[in-house]
Write a protein that binds this DNA or RNA. Structure first.
Lengths: 206, 206
DNA sequence: GTCTATAGCAAGATAGAC
DNA sequence: GTCTATCTTGCTATAGAC
């Protein structure tokens, strides 16, 4: 096992190689996509031969699945932690803004894994998508809860159905506008804070 | 030549096959991506053998490039036509809403080509992306002009630089929220008009 | 743990028959 | 215009040496 019961990573030889493989694979998936990432190229970049990868992963899809699982978990954890640091009395409007900010920052600066997940998800085999369902749903849940609180706080006259539709649309609009930034954001020119501010009107008047 | 000087398509045998190949290729690119779409599979779906495709296209990338070029042109033309039908006195706010609506409708109901373009663009070879630059820029230009008018109409105190940054962010936010719909929109459950309405706050007070 | 070597298959592309 | 046949290359994956 490469992890102890407490979850701490033992830095033995295997886990170091394994982690390096994952790091490079994430970058390649982000850049060239699922199908075009070959195990030969990947192995070369980590100074190995292709066959050696199978000591660490049982198949290409197992490796790809792990990259994508880490990708969603990184953003998920970052958002959860950020929300926990906010004072309990923080208005839901501000909680949503904080979540948007940390989602975007994690995506853009901290994680090839997350961008690999977002870009490759439509094209990986169905079996890989199935294995990701739980992790994706649990991240969706964070946003659904966050936005439900927000909608409730600012609008008391909706039926349950109307409320759910509104939350759903708002969630997709926000995550769409944020995730799409992978295709254009340039950290030298663009400012995360400014972009999030431009999305704030979606949340309605404060 | 498969087209006359006027641009009308002659329905000879070659152009029919060619069009059918493009239609099926668009659907495959949308579903499985650039790398995973094989010419053998494509040929089978149009009742041909792989080699025969080379009578119509000089390479896989030439075919892929044409699918994507058509994809952006379809949306571009649809938006241009829609804007022309609007009364000249139409407020820029409403012109933007109309453009959002037709962009989304074209993307979701009318064009495997456009969704193939959006999904595959990050992963096609650099040479293919280069060939698409002009067409993509000319579509971007439509939105930049549209949103510049809108920002000017609703805010007179910005410097040129601030205005351009605002337009740029707004454009990416809108197109991100619209294009991302490929990943979740279900025409049986979701309503285009309702989703566009939920994005309207991005445009500020009327 | 990583290597060499290779099996087994599928890809893009081409030549020439029809 | 389309087919058959094939070349060349590249892929995932496995077996067994070290």
């Amino acid at each position: 096992m490469s992890k102890s019961k407490s979850g701490k990573i033992k830095q033995n030889k295997a886990s170091i190689s394994r982690q390096e493989i994952l790091n490079v694979a994430a970058k390649m998936m982000r850049d060239v996509g699922y199908s075009h990432m070959s195990l030969r190229d990947l192995a070369q970049k980590v100074d190995m031969k292709a066959g050696s990868l199978y000591y660490h992963f049982s198949s290409k899809d197992a490796l790809v699945g792990e990259v994508m699982r880490v990708g969603v978990d990184i953003v998920s954890s970052a958002v959860i932690e950020e929300l926990q640091t906010l004072p309990t009395e923080t208005a839901s409007h501000d909680r949503v803004l904080a979540a948007m900010h940390i989602h975007l920052r994690t995506l853009l600066s901290a994680s090839d894994f997350s961008s690999a997940h977002i870009r490759c998800y439509p094209f990986v085999p169905e079996a890989v998508r199935q294995d990701l369902l739980d992790h994706r749903r649990s991240y969706d849940r964070i946003w659904t809860d966050l936005l439900t609180s927000h909608i409730r706080a600012s609008n008391h006259k909706l039926t349950n159905e109307e409320q759910q539709a509104k939350v759903r649309h708002l969630r997709h609009a926000i995550l769409g506008a944020l995730n799409w930034s992978l295709e254009w954001f340039d950290e030298d020119r663009d400012d995360i804070q400014a972009y999030v501010a431009s999305l704030e009107p979606l949340l309605g008047s404060r």
